[in-house]
Design a protein around this nucleic acid. Structure first.
Lengths: 210, 210, 210, 210
DNA sequence: CATGAATGAGCGTTCATTCAT
DNA sequence: TATGAATGAACGCTCATTCAT
């Protein structure tokens, strides 16, 4: 997907190299989460990571773009593993939707900084043409695709009423994505209760029967 | 709310001064909408506004912060007038919620660039302490307050079931805020149909009866 | 010819602006002449010009490219005026060639640093595509064009024998361009004598008669 | 001539070491020829040579200076062998001059990249004191020495008229050195015809008789 | 009300080189 | 013989802002 140009980046095969990359990515996420994307510079990242100079970042990543891409990729991997584990044994579409919501709320609760950072990256990181790099794939979108599939299955099986799956999926996802903001406004928010509210909300909004 | 420090800004009472401010704010919104907050600089704004130097911006606004605050204030004023007109003669809470959703969808449809720009500002604009300046007011939050009041009224009047009004309001608001992103992913999205989907969705999610 | 993009450079109409530009160009030429193109940086130029920071250079020139282009343009203007004055009242092609050589040698003698700097710029300054920006225009080349015309006129009038005017012009020009190198190797070189040697050399090489 | 400082360079006696050095030198010449001296870095050379890191260059050469010196030395060796073969059986000074010119033109035609690279190195490569490392030896100059000797011999033997041998040699050499530039301006230039032009030009310019 | 000139700090990136195996 | 890792310095450039009319 991402093509590197000059081949200046060292091989990431080695153990210590991968460790450094992880360390830098972690520092990047922390910095973005705390200061925001706009205030995040190589200097600030290096400082947080305890690196002697920003040169080490340039050494391990071809540029700012690759660093951000790597951070996003790491996030997808992390959340993907988590969600796959939670979604493994769902029995029906209603259960799948309930589980999706509760699992994601749990993930958000445990990864607030990570979520904040990803939000920042998604909203600020643009490619050379100026196009945003997220939410731009339609139904088969990397993020919404899973939800859309759950909703479609539920409609086919008669569990869910007839609605636009894309709009519904986007509404569910944004309610979940928005939790970090809610937590900022109300740090004492009971996330378990919150998850129940959302489960009920979308169960009522989707189910077919009375 | 916003405190100016150095008091260098000229009086905005004069006609030409106000006109200049409006022109600069408009150019700011356009620039942010097109390039994103991160790529928006005084130089880029001045270029778009056809100003000879960035000095004119510094002259009319105490700094970047005041410029952004002014843009947000202008937006609140604009959308406030629009929504007030639409919400003027609602008859009940269900109607109020339906009207809120359809009106906001209509506003988004007609002000896509403005919405995009505000989204960018809300998510990137931080005060000196690093705290985000939006969504940070709790129930009486400037944005969610109106929705929360509608939902509470509906609960009191028995039209709506029992739910956490803050979570519900945030979910509604985020679904609406997210429309610009949906439009980016699917530029041909039918916004009228979309509004109907959301009205139905939240009607089912909120109403008390069977 | 050169198109500027972002319009960040200030108007060069004003007096003080033009003076600053000249000062910076002069410092640029001196720096290149002394240290070579490769060792010439904004920092080094600013230091020599006594500027408080390199920012002033970026302020007056859109970038390194425009600075170099401006230096070259100033050079063409300077040498153009000089040569035009010397070539004003030549009587025939042989005289024109002799005058061209002696005048250029005189110019070189009086503008050694300037010549050295231009040599460096011509040989190092490349546009974005990597193409050299000098000596690349064929007969109508800005530099060789004048010489080619002299030679052609002489051939038409029977003063010069038949030869390839482009090759001859290039040989003359390079002999002249090379003088700064000769002067480096032999700082005590008698330039007047040298001019006579070259006049004789190319007179013998070009003339038609016995 | 070239002194190494730190003595970190490995023995070049070994076979693989010498091969590596040759490979690196070749990549260096290609890179300079294509991108120019200013854009040539260890990274770019390593990339072209297919090396995993720039470290290999630092390992085989004490530094950038030694790498360039080695490239120049290789060039002198290469062109020296070629010219020696061509100049072996010249019969007189006029013949020597003609042969020198035609042979050098032939060499240039067959080694355009190499010539371009050497030009770049000569004009950009400076020692620590900032002094250029080429054309700086007077009569016994490595490059011009041979030509000066031919011209002196011709004068002593009465074949050539009286002229400054240094100026004449420099003029001849620069006409030949300039061919790569001419070829850039006119890629379809007929080099054989060009050689004849130059032979005639300098024969007329040097010969004693009528 | 307007503006040309100037500024120090910071940006991401590239440089040749050294360290430690 | 070779290599991955690391480094401080410098690069051109852009930032929001201030000075002085």
């Amino acid at each position: 997907m991402q093509v590197r140009k000059g081949r200046e980046t060292p091989a990431e095969h080695s153990f210590t190299g991968a460790a450094r990359r992880s360390q830098i990515i972690a520092a990047t996420i922390e910095t973005i989460a705390e200061l925001g994307y706009g205030q995040t510079s190589f200097a600030r990242i290096a400082e947080r990571a305890g690196l002697s100079s920003t040169r080490l970042i340039s050494y391990h990543f071809a540029g700012k773009d690759e660093l951000m891409s790597a951070a996003v990729a790491e996030f997808y991997d992390h959340i993907g593993r988590f969600m796959a584990g939670r979604m493994a044994d769902v029995t029906c579409a209603r259960d799948a939707l309930r589980t999706y919501i509760t699992a994601l709320v749990a993930y958000v609760a445990d990864n607030r900084a990570r979520m904040r950072a990803m939000m920042e990256i998604f909203l600020n990181f643009r490619d050379e043409d100026g196009a945003s790099r997220s939410y731009d794939g339609g139904d088969e979108n990397e993020v919404l695709g899973h939800l859309v599939r759950i909703l479609r299955d539920g409609q086919r099986g008669g569990e869910f009423r007839d609605f636009d799956t894309f709009v519904m999926a986007a509404t569910v996802q944004r309610a979940l994505d928005g939790l970090p903001f809610l937590l900022e406004a109300r740090p004492d928010l009971d996330l378990a209760a919150c998850a129940e509210e959302l489960v009920t909300l979308f169960d009522l909004a989707t189910r077919s029967g009375p």
